[in-house]
Design a protein around this nucleic acid. Structure first.
Lengths: 218, 218
DNA sequence: CGCGGATTTGAACGGAGTCAATCCGCGTGG
DNA sequence: CCACGCGGATTGACTCCGTTCAAATCCGCG
């Protein structure tokens, strides 16, 4: 949480972001339906969030890495609508929401920041809707790789070389594809010289080539 | 905006929800990229919001009717990421956002309400992602009809009989389908005795039948 | 009353899904 | 330390749902 706060305000904020929680790979941070009372920021590792259906089908709604905020869906009804699982051993930091509300009444810059965070999540999801609703399989996967690449870059990691933390099935669920399709596309991208994909290891050889895949079929 | 506010607080609120705007059918309330400074609530008519792609493809992100709030995506960057068009002659009420922030610092109940509204939008979009990513065409359209039905009901209209305000193409864009597919499904639902669909007029004959369409294939 | 956009319907196609067989590699336990 | 087991990944063959292309019809609106 950056933003134009005074030193004093920052000290106040520090006072309530103390509690942390460790989650082992595969474990659940919270389940859909569980009561909401705090947001979480990722301090270490990465998580996925997913909404699920009566019949067992699930839709992955996001993959979350260092610094990202999860749990915003819980504010609305005081209960989470999605579940959150760790993709690897991870650690999150708790932000008790009612305290966050108290602080943000006192600190306008924080209040505005909270609003922007909520709104960003809406924008992110709109982007996903566009991806799910209008893109072809190839475009979806290319977008996905470029998005990951960008997020690693911002965190100071390599934009062109990284290790996926999620399975083909989870990628597929996120993109509205089956795992076999995801796998086949990785192979096709590799044959086309766009990437190297060996299981979870990914190296992007031609980011512009990936970008050009996104666009009208023609 | 209901919520547990005192009479005095309500009076304060009234003072800033005065400005209204009329939009004719097909006209635009705001464009993607335009600067954000206010939210809008629908007072009359209905609107659609859509995100669009460089290449012209568009994804309808929602249809909005009486009482619903639009523009929340603009908070994040002070610019709208989607555009809003009137589906019929409509009227919206402006809520200048910075004033809303001021008020909500002073009135905790309002502050919490704003948070819940933002969060509800996140939940709504998660639901759409599930729809777009995991449902088959038939399930998508059945969900869509049941959702509309429910929203009309809450507003005191008939849940079983209504007039669509959007075209087959707009429905298709919202559901991630082509307009021909939407049209064919309406016909199939009609043959199956689930609905009557004559152009924009819809009558739901068997809501439970529609509900049963939603679920694992077989 | 006539025009043009919206809708319906048909036929053929193709992209992604399904089913199935194999392969890989990581972690575990002997 | 190595062998084994098992979940994840790859690949192939075939299917099918939704798209595409095309034509006809409907209907609201000027």
């Amino acid at each position: 949480m950056p933003m134009g706060l005074t030193a004093d305000e920052l000290r106040q904020l520090d006072s309530f972001v103390d509690e942390r929680r460790r989650i082992k790979r595969g474990e659940r941070l919270y389940a859909a339906g569980s009561t909401f009372d705090a947001l979480f920021t990722v301090r270490l590792g990465s998580l996925k969030t997913a909404v699920l259906f009566e019949d067992g089908r699930e839709q992955v709604t996001g993959f979350h890495m260092l610094g990202e905020l999860i749990g915003l869906d819980g504010i609305s009804t005081e209960a989470h609508t999605c579940s959150a699982h760790a993709l690897e051993d991870s650690e999150v930091c708790l932000l008790p929401f009612s305290r966050l509300e108290d602080f943000s009444r006192r600190i306008p810059a924080l209040q505005h920041h909270v609003h922007r965070l909520l709104s960003s999540e809406i924008v992110r999801e709109q982007h996903n809707m566009l991806l799910l609703g209008t893109m072809r399989a190839e475009e979806k996967l290319a977008s996905f790789l470029l998005d990951l690449s960008d997020r690693y870059l911002r965190r100071g990691y390599s934009a062109s070389e990284f290790v996926l933390r999620m399975t083909r099935e989870e990628i597929g669920s996120f993109l509205g594809l089956k795992l076999e399709t995801v796998s086949r596309l990785f192979s096709r991208f590799q044959e086309a010289g766009l990437i190297i994909a060996q299981q979870k290891y990914i190296k992007i050889l031609d980011a512009n080539g990936l970008r050009q895949l996104i666009g009208p079929p023609d």
